[in-house]
Amino acid sequence: MSEKTALILLGCPQVPVQTSMALYLVHGLSQRGIRPVVAGTMAARKLMEVADPDRHYLGEMVDLDAAIDEITGKVRDFDLCFVFIHNDSGIAYAGTMAYISGARLYTLIFGEHAEDLAGEIEFPCEVIKAKATHNPMPLKRRFDEVMQWAASMR
């Protein structure tokens, strides 16, 4: 059986919870035998790399546009896809992933406007939302439930 893979698509890194929750998600997926690939802007990726200098958690990291290029070009795809969302662009990227990828899609919606943004979701996905900006714990609790679903897919 081939290894399961997950794409973690980072949004703009201006909301603090994103980086720590993304590292937590990378760790959780790895522990469950799912290989995480992180995609994001250079700033979003650098925040991750600086937080994990010895790469204890991080594996492959790719540029956001390069990841979309590969998926639209049918070069690669993933079993799972987690999209971090705290603004309209996040919704736009998640909607794009719902269309171009065959991955099971999870939208992780956080920040001040989490509830309103969740109302904008018009495509098939699992919505995980919490009004978290600085304190990651509300989102972590929701993550933990989802991690069990992800693992059960193996």
């Binding site: 546009d65 979309i68 290029d69 998926i71 639209t72 662009s89 919704i91 736009a92 990227y93 909607g95 794009t96 719902a98 269309y99 171009i100 018009e122 495509f123």
Partner: peptide
Amino acid sequence: GYRVFDVHIIGV
């Protein structure tokens, strides 16, 4: 995901 020049059209 449609590519025009060097960018992708993103959205629903």
